[in-house]
Amino acid sequence: MQLVDKILPYKSLSIVGLEKNTGKTETLNYVLKNIKNSSKRVAITSIGIDGETVDAVTNTSKPEIMIYREMIFTTAEQYFLKKRFSAEILDISREHTILGRLVTAKAVSNGKILLSGAADTHTLKKTIENNVRFGTDITIVDGALSRMSLASPAITEAMILATGAAYSSNIETLVRKTKFVCTLIGLATFDSSNIKFIDSNSTISINGDVELKGVYCLIDNELHDLDMLSALTISNISKGNLEKMRQNRTIFVFGILSNKLIDFLIEKNIAKDSTIVAKDFSTIFISDDKYHIFQKMGGKIMVLRKTNLIAVTVNPTSPEGIILNSTILQKRLEDEIGIKVIDVKQAEQK
């Protein structure tokens, strides 16, 4: 199955780079070029700025973003005025960014553009919802550097991950680090259908949309607040709530899940048979070694919502000129993660 065929069933897609210069923009251009002749109406936006001709950090040339006729795009006013093709304005947002309001338009001809879309995930979600009003079938979001939050299943339904020599110049290290990110993306979903949260005498169902904060313990299918605003301050937990955790080892974290909670559970001998449930992979900031130690001790990490990772793309060339063997890199990654891996530059030449 071709990459485009995997994309078409979804209404929204994010493209996220693990590091600067891992080929995210090349991946976006490859997707746009190959999807333009499909029957789907495509919209494109970004979180952050992308499409620069020169990398501000490495001072190396970068590919610009190519928009095709009939595609809908959203970018800031300043960049909309600098575009090099004709477009019909569909909407101008009330919200302001540092580069002006967000302009949504339909391309009347082909051309290149700088994208600077929503500054936050709330506005991004609103942009995606608005695109449906303009008859789009799928919105593609170009992500800022390592901005995993846009790939949250609460924002986009599917994602493509871009990795490469800029992330690590050693193939085995690159494969190991990329595999770990894919492991987090692929974490199993916790069945929360029968779980309730009781707050102020009202009962609500727990799912990926619920806006809770802090750390909770599951007792008899009910979430009990452990009076922690964040898992980052878990060391301040009361003796009573610590005992709840010890007796009921399913812990829900609404917010950032970091090494601190893992270390705490190991230190208190609670890691064995513990299950930590995070909102989704984008809220998990734990290291590879801590994850595997926790796993070996009998602990599990699960999520309320899972993202559909449909492909991984590779850029075997680093800004410093290091070139990895693309064929070996693709095979090693595919063997480890079980997902199609594409060198888009190589694919373009076929």
Score class of each variant (00 low, 15 high):
Lys82Phe: 06
Ser282His: 08
Asn315Ile: 01
Ile342Ser: 11
Ile44Pro: 04
Lys36Ala: 12
Arg94Lys: 15
Asn236Ala: 08
Met245Asn: 05
Ile140Thr: 08
Glu222Asp: 10
Thr97Glu: 05
Met1Ser: 11
Leu232Pro: 00
Ala311Arg: 10
Phe197Gln: 02
Arg41Asn: 15
Thr75Ser: 09
Ile270Cys: 12
Lys177Met: 11
Ala231Gly: 10
Ile44Gln: 02
Ser192Phe: 12
Phe197Val: 15
Asn130His: 09
Ala118Val: 10
Cys217Ile: 12
Glu19Pro: 00
Asn21Asp: 11
Asn221Arg: 09
Asn59Arg: 12
Gly135Arg: 03
Arg147Ser: 04
Thr156His: 00
Ile339Ser: 12
Asn221Ser: 11
Ile128His: 10
Lys239Ser: 13
Gly240Thr: 10
Ser200Gln: 14
Ser274Gly: 05
Ser193Ile: 11
Thr173Ile: 02
Asn269Trp: 00
Ala107Phe: 10
Arg147Phe: 12
Glu267Ala: 15
Gly214Ser: 13
Glu64His: 04
Lys40Ser: 14
Gln247Lys: 15
Tyr10Cys: 04
Gln295Thr: 09
Glu95Ile: 13
Leu99Phe: 14
Phe73Gln: 01
Thr183Arg: 14
Leu150Ala: 11
Ser238Thr: 14
Ile47Gln: 01
Ser192Lys: 04
Asn207Gln: 11
Asn259Ile: 08
Lys126Cys: 00
Ile219Lys: 10
Ser61Asp: 06
Thr22Leu: 01
Ile206Val: 15
Thr317Leu: 10
Asp273Gly: 06
Arg84Glu: 13
Tyr167Ser: 10
Arg305Ser: 15
Thr183His: 14
Thr173Leu: 07
Val312His: 09
Leu223Gln: 07
Lys24Leu: 07
Lys179Leu: 03
Asn236Tyr: 04
Ser200Pro: 00
Ile198Lys: 12
Ile15Val: 15
His224Lys: 12
Gly186Pro: 09
Arg101Leu: 00
Glu320Trp: 01
Val344Lys: 05
Tyr30Gly: 06
Val312Thr: 14
Thr22Gln: 05
Ala311Asp: 07
Arg147Leu: 08
Asn34Thr: 05
Ala76Gly: 03
Ala151Lys: 02
Ile276Gly: 01
Leu81Gly: 01
Asp289Gln: 10
Lys40Tyr: 06
Thr75Leu: 03
Glu129Ala: 13
Thr75Tyr: 03
Leu114Asp: 02
Ser12Asn: 11
Asn201Trp: 03
Glu77Arg: 15
Lys272Pro: 00
Asn130Trp: 02
Thr307Tyr: 00
Thr275Gly: 06
Lys6Arg: 13
Arg305Asn: 14
Lys260Glu: 14
Glu88Gln: 14
Val132Asn: 03
Leu13Tyr: 05
Tyr68Gln: 13
Leu115His: 01
Glu88Asp: 10
Glu52Gly: 03
Ala119Gly: 13
Lys179Thr: 12
Ile310Tyr: 05
Gly321His: 07
Ser169Tyr: 03
Arg246Lys: 15
Asp263His: 14
Lys306Gly: 05
His292Thr: 10
Asn269Gly: 01
Lys345Ser: 10
Leu187Lys: 11
Asp220Glu: 15
Thr123Ile: 13
Ala166Glu: 12
Lys268Thr: 07
Ser235Phe: 03
Arg84Pro: 01
Pro319Val: 10
Glu222Lys: 09
Glu70Tyr: 00
Gly111Glu: 13
Gly143Met: 07
Leu90Met: 09
Ala154Cys: 08
Asn325Gly: 03
Leu18Trp: 01
Ser238Met: 09
Arg305Ile: 06
Ile337Asn: 07
Val4Cys: 04
Leu212Lys: 07
Ile98Gln: 04
Leu242Asn: 00
